[in-house]
Design a protein around this nucleic acid. Sequence first.
DNA 1: TACATTGTTCCGTC
DNA 2: CGACGGAACAATGT
Length: 264
Amino acid sequence: MLAGQTMPELPEVEAARQKLERWTLDQPIHALEVLDDKLAVDPARLVGQRITRWERRGKALVARLPDSALFLHLGMTGKLVRDPGERPYQRLRLTCNQMVAFIDPRRFGDARTLSHAEADALLAALGPDARDNPLDAAALKAAMGRGKTPLKTRLLEQQRLAGLGNIAVIEACYRANVHPHAPVDRLDDAAWTRLVPAIQAHLEATLAAIDPDAELTYLSEGAPSEFLVYGHEDAPCERCGTRIVREVLAGRPTFWCTQCQPLP
DNA sequence: TACATTGTTCCGTC
DNA sequence: CGACGGAACAATGT
């Protein structure tokens, strides 16, 4: 049972998309304030137009308007807040019927005004969305490619499968009893077959734990969190009691049970 | 202080 | 030399 959010991964971005729909869909943009010069957002291309659609693919969000598109990525600490008042770290303020602020303390997020063609190209560069287009085992295997590259590395590549971040990959591998360092060439069909529902189960459990009306809160803000294996270094595996191992791979912490997730 | 975190870009290696 | 994988980068709170 999962509770709370950490980084914005696919489920958090989907929750943000739903908020944006509730707050801005079919409404003309009354004002757009760019509070951070790093964001290549041109209000002149957007103000006065009506948002006809909010799309999401993986962690990417795109607002469609008649003549332009607005790309939004939450990065590591991004969130959307209604009526932000004087809260710090606001980077963008979008006002339709009500004001919505893009708040992002780490500033790893992004927002850009794009043409529809540019937005299409950006979305097309991403792999299939990990939730909207659930892959079967054969398609997942094909998407992960060949070679000695660790499964974790490939699952993180957004152009292969869009939406999974470090935590989602670690949790899915644990659920599937697959070693995150396993070279993709070494995984048998049974492993690919286990990975598909493992990924889905993690995403759905995380999504179900998000209160659609509450502001996203992150671990650094003291949000409660309960992962199956992420962060459990040296703690006993909940299935077999073996001590959970931590190692850095692809520059990010990796956790697994050496008993449940043997290296193939 | 070093570390944590994301996705992209760069560079060394095979 | 092409492909690949690790490191660096940006930013800031703990």
